[in-house]
């Protein structure tokens, strides 16, 4: 039982981590907690769905439940979701930034944006649950007592690749350096010749792409619903804060902690209380480490 719960925890945690990295990036560079981030997950998942409906499915790849068309849809949905994030930024957040609105005004605006984006999904794609494929896979026992689906292994593997890739980009590319400079001090970054709006745009693209991928993974392993992002929102924000905003690996660890806690908790307490578990952990952690697990203590 425990083995299965841990395996499931890693899977949930991986999806949460992809979402949490996006939240963490935007809170460092854009300086606010984006409550509409979860809607980018939903949009990404639905854009990919639309694309797979038009494309010929293609034969499933090896043991996986989907064909090449979904992989291509991942790319396309990632890009389009990034574009959507930029459009929202143009319409709402950039205007607020140019007025030097404080960060909580941005948070409230993101509440409103979330309401609009979520209900647009409902209008466009309808309320029913949808699936990328109606084929049901039977899990194989990879270790005694631990069953995993090929899709799940694929999702975990791709998540690890994405995180490492992102780490390398942030560390070594020019864009990554500009982003880190912005996170440290926007004023200083500007003096050093970093183009603020360009960095902001790329931040949205990266956050949007990761969100779309997390959304597609969630849709692939569970199902697509207009509220799917919203239902993940609190877990994602919790993961981002738990890890300590400001660190890539912090967000990953935060995601894994939340994922594992949810899955392990039901072995100890009634499942009715599962939804409260991540918060209890969050409040405990913040009580002793207000800056999060890996965050640097506030010195500003």
């Amino acid at each position: 039982m425990i083995g299965q719960a841990i395996a499931d925890g890693f899977l949930t945690g991986g999806i949460l981590a992809l979402g949490a990295i996006g939240v963490s990036l935007s809170s460092q560079i854009l300086k606010f907690a984006n409550f509409s981030h979860s809607e980018l997950l939903t949009w990404g998942a639905y854009i990919a769905l639309t694309f797979t409906m038009f494309a010929t499915a293609g034969a499933p790849i090896g043991p996986l439940s989907f064909g090449w068309s979904l992989l291509f849809a991942v790319l396309l949905a990632g890009v389009l979701t990034g574009v959507l994030a930029i459009i929202v930024d143009r319409l709402v957040f950039r205007r607020l930034r140019s007025r030097h609105a404080n960060s909580l005004t941005m948070v409230f605006a993101s509440f409103g944006v979330a309401l609009i984006l979520r209900n647009l999904v409902l209008l466009i794609w309808g309320p029913e649950a949808q699936y990328y494929t109606s084929e049901l896979q039977i899990a194989t026992e990879i270790l005694p007592g631990i069953r995993l689906l090929p899709d799940q292994v694929f999702v975990l593997g791709l998540t690890i690749v994405l995180v490492i890739g992102l780490h390398l980009i942030l560390k070594y590319s020019r864009l990554g350096m500009s982003m880190r400079a912005m996170a440290e001090s926007p004023a200083l970054a500007r003096v050093c010749g970093v183009k603020i709006e360009t960095v902001v745009r790329w931040t949205w693209v990266v956050a949007g792409m990761l969100a779309a991928i997390a959304g597609i993974f969630s849709g692939l392993t569970v199902q697509l619903r207009p509220e799917m992002g919203f239902n993940l929102l609190l877990a994602i924000l919790t993961a981002a804060i738990l890890g300590g905003s400001g660190s890539l690996f912090g967000a990953v660890i935060g995601g894994l902690v939340v994922g594992l806690a949810e899955n392990l908790s039901v072995l100890v307490i009634p499942a009715n209380f599962k939804a409260a578990v991540p918060f209890m952990i969050l409040i405990l952690v913040l009580y002793f480490r207000p800056q999060g697990l890996l965050g640097k203590s506030e010195t500003k």
């Binding site: 809170s27 606010f32 907690a33 960060s103 909580l104 948070v107 609190l234 924000l237 919790t238 804060i241 939804a275 409260a276 991540p278 918060f279 209890m280 969050l282 409040i283 913040l286 207000p290």
Partner: peptide, 15 residues
Amino acid sequence: RGDYLAIATFGIAVT
């Protein structure tokens, strides 16, 4: 502070 307090209190309401 700020967003952190928001998430913590939100979690309490859920609980």
